[in-house]
Amino acid sequence: MAAGGDHGSPDSYRSPLASRYASPEMCFVFSDRYKFRTWRQLWLWLAEAEQTLGLPITDEQIQEMKSNLENIDFKMAAEEEKRLRHDVMAHVHTFGHCCPKAAGIIHLGATSCYVGDNTDLIILRNALDLLLPKLARVISRLADFAKERASLPTLGFTHFQPAQLTTVGKRCCLWIQDLCMDLQNLKRVRDDLRFRGVKGTTGTQASFLQLFEGDDHKVEQLDKMVTEKAGFKRAFIITGQTYTRKVDIEVLSVLASLGASVHKICTDIRLLANLKEMEEPFEKQQIGSSAMPYKRNPMRSERCCSLARHLMTLVMDPLQTASVQWFERTLDDSANRRICLAEAFLTADTILNTLQNISEGLVVYPKVIERRIRQELPFMATENIIMAMVKAGGSRQDCHEKIRVLSQQAASVVKQEGGDNDLIERIQVDAYFSPIHSQLDHLLDPSSFTGRASQQVQRFLEEEVYPLLKPYESVMKVKAELCL
């Protein structure tokens, strides 16, 4: 049975990233139509530049190519590739079939990587351009969430054990800070992308030097003109047959890092959902379990974690691919890159769409948070109580021993009897502590235990987050809708 299948058929496997999760716009960027249309555009740009620099290419040939950029006979191309065992030459023939007058000058002087690699770089750039505003929107939604809850005390956790208090907004800023680093890295790697350009079979530009009869300047002009037509500021000066596969490492490393950030955020949300302090959106008709109707599973956060793990592992592909590119190139890269580049971007696209949807509907339960604080705060307040007693004339050592005994009794009630923490009640009825009984409410005010959390939130948002989001103001209103 021949390899390949009808990918629109229910009898043929289709990647869930495309069929179930990723956005239509990201799927289109990695589609065959987008790819092969870009090949034709690159052939047109090459012909236009070659004509401008004096090669015998007519206006009629150029116009014929322009008129057929979208006229792609995919069936013919597939048949040609089956016959020739070469995808680029299959599309040269297919393009030439609908451009008979231009057929002889299509791909003039070029090698397969002229269309293959340059198209990949265009796709990487455009895919990054799709991700950047999506990530900015996630940051914006979380920034709104953090600002609104900047002063809401909550129990902090280290080692997932109760620690000092923080605020809900401050905790959210930990998430935002990681995503801001990801946004900066995505922008950097996007701006650092260079075009492969017009380089020939081993990167020496020998074929173009021959076409222009040894004119170095025209060869350099050709490279520059096509690079500018493709919208790049610069091209690699040095290439082998391909652009260095280190570029793929750079791009997928940034995406993998984004995956790590999203995994951490969504894990926190899942843990908070278990504590009943916070939940992701839950639709009115949504079913959490087929057997347990009360369940409210954090399905979206779980999906993000599941896909983020996949995204983090994909960076190993370009690392290994770059390491086995012998001399000017081997074909070890080809099949692998067809999979890992598309999957990385479709996965990143999915987790950003999902995280935006989550961040637009996060639900906080202040009463649950308050109750958990009441359970733990008495123990945390013991040092403040000791200091207040010393100020009232008591002995630190005597007070410490009193607190120690009462704390152990209260802990026994919590752990052995399943009761509430009654340390404060014990202190309130103990005559030894009568000098500070009137101060206990103040000493137990949760806001006095959150330090500068709310001020940190305000400063972080104003100095770091809002300036970073400013270039994306025009796209901030787009909502994230999930079908599944």
Rank of each mutant, 00 (worst) to 15 (best):
L152C: 13
I72S: 07
F95E: 00
F327D: 05
D6Q: 02
L130D: 06
I106L: 06
F36K: 11
M316P: 04
F36P: 02
D87R: 00
H217L: 09
F345T: 12
Q210C: 06
F236W: 12
N118R: 00
I427T: 08
F74Y: 09
L468H: 06
E50N: 04
N297A: 00
I369Q: 07
F212G: 05
R141F: 12
M225G: 04
K101S: 08
A77W: 08
A127I: 01
D182V: 03
K218Q: 10
Y294D: 03
R452D: 04
D248K: 04
I369C: 14
T158H: 00
L128E: 08
L271S: 05
S253N: 13
Q51N: 06
H217W: 12
A163W: 02
A410T: 04
Y432K: 06
K134A: 11
A78W: 10
R296D: 07
L311A: 04
S207D: 01
V226Q: 01
M299L: 03
R309Y: 07
A410S: 10
E79A: 08
V324G: 08
T227Y: 10
G104N: 10
T239R: 01
A110Q: 00
L69Y: 07
P293I: 07
V115Y: 00
Y294L: 02
L443N: 02
R194I: 03
D223N: 08
P378D: 02
D73W: 06
F145P: 00
E60A: 10
P281H: 11
K134T: 14
A230Q: 01
L131V: 08
A18S: 15
L179C: 10
A453S: 13
L121E: 09
H86N: 00
R40L: 01
K276N: 04
T94W: 09
T58M: 11
I238Q: 05
K134Q: 15
T450A: 08
G5M: 15
L53P: 02
A260T: 02
T119R: 01
R194Q: 10
F28V: 07
E328R: 03
G96W: 07
R85G: 02
L377A: 03
P16M: 12
L193R: 04
H91F: 05
I385D: 07
S359A: 07
M312D: 09
C99W: 00
F30Y: 08
F212S: 05
L307Q: 15
L142C: 10
L482I: 14
R459M: 12
R309Q: 01
V92E: 06
V115W: 00
E228C: 09
E48S: 06
P56E: 12
E360V: 00
A230R: 05
V88C: 02
L319K: 02
M476P: 15
A103M: 12
K66V: 10
L341S: 15
F157S: 08
S112V: 01
